[in-house]
Design a protein around this nucleic acid. Structure first.
Lengths: 202, 202
DNA sequence: ACCGTTAGTTTACACCGTAAACCCGTCAGG
DNA sequence: CCTGACGGGTTTACGGTGTAAACTAACGGT
């Protein structure tokens, strides 16, 4: 099959999803494409551009509906959930989305669409921006927290997490709580906190 | 000067602060230490351990006072500010702190200390954990947002951010707002939102 | 039939993490 | 004092990385 920007970026994303971000190298990607690594440089000037291409197709998965007259709380919740779902669908790519330079066109478009939503819901421009910062920060942060604590929740059929014998006493206290923590619920907890906080904004 | 774990980790952090995380390589670090790169392996088994060492001294900068009877809102705000200040003091190291595996001893200790604070303030264990997740997520997320949008705020003596001529229309609308955004204020905005949300928790 | 463009390959270079062998100064025991 | 072990640092080496440059093979238009 012929090469193309789209096919390269998609196989790259598949590779990252499968083997992690570290495993993405030009040569390995070339191998997955059935081609020599250097061929990719005909379509992307360097690896950074390739990563930007991945971000682009990731953000394309995120459909942001045009402004309507549904209450902003609802919109806010739905967007947060959609973004969260996107991140959890591609956990290995989270670092890519965590540091999104807004100068990237794909990012700018997504941010702009959300801003439009918030503006339509009655936020003035500065608060809309602050709200956007708050929510993306929260969603990304929580996704990172979640993958960071994932080992404690891994299926272990009843056995507790195998802590090293010299583990910090704080950690042995923390571990069981982490193990039984329902991430979805924790996310909802923080989301409620933020929405309630926004409702009472002055 | 003789080598030691502490000196190596500190020079590594200095190197990261100066030249960025990407620039940290065993050989360059060796050069900064006046020694051959391989010498570091006498003190750290591999690069991951070295990074963990950096995290350790970073978190050591964060002094978490023992529980007292000051209102939790105050404690919460102070801890958030302290963590934020730490992140901004070492912007290049943020990715290191963004994905903190709690199994790391230094991380566990810090998390445990904050949990103790929250517990003392009357949170039950599950909500304390959820609150910890919420706040660290928010603080880390906002720091990442901040460095990501930093170019728009860079000192440009009056000139607006030089957007490429084919920039996304959303971006050209966004850019001036970003430029005049006061990050400290935005942070405070979100922090208020979260504190108010926590106050009205059921 | 030729020529230019395009798509992909080959080769090369500097750098990376790290395993293994080595080299040398210090110190302990005979 | 000699010797031998050892710890800290060096050298060399290997496989992997991103990417610049030169090369090659196919194809479309004149």
């Amino acid at each position: 099959m012929a090469l193309s920007r789209a096919r390269i970026a998609e196989t790259a994303l598949a590779l990252v999803d499968r083997d992690g971000l570290e495993a993405l190298s030009m040569r390995k990607l070339g191998a997955d494409l059935g081609v020599e690594g250097m061929a990719i440089y005909r379509y992307f000037p360097n690896k950074a551009a390739l990563l930007a291409g991945i971000v682009e197709i990731l953000l394309a998965e995120l459909v942001i509906p045009p402004p309507s007259d549904v209450p902003w709380q609802r919109v806010f919740r739905e967007l947060s959930h959609a973004y969260r779902a996107l991140l959890l669908r591609h956990p290995h790519a989270i670092p890519l989305l965590a540091t999104l330079p807004l100068s990237d066109p794909a990012t700018a478009r997504a941010a702009g669409a959300v801003m439009a939503q918030l503006r339509a819901a009655g936020f003035d421009a500065p608060s809309a921006l602050k709200t956007l910062a708050t929510i993306t920060s929260y969603v990304v942060g929580v996704a990172q927290w979640e993958v960071g604590t994932a080992p404690f929740r891994a299926e272990r059929n009843g056995e507790p997490f195998p802590l090293p014998p010299d583990a910090d006493p704080y950690l042995v206290e923390l571990a069981p709580q982490l193990a039984e923590d329902d991430c979805e619920e924790t996310f909802e907890f923080g989301l409620d906190v933020i929405v309630r906080g926004l409702e009472t904004r002055s």
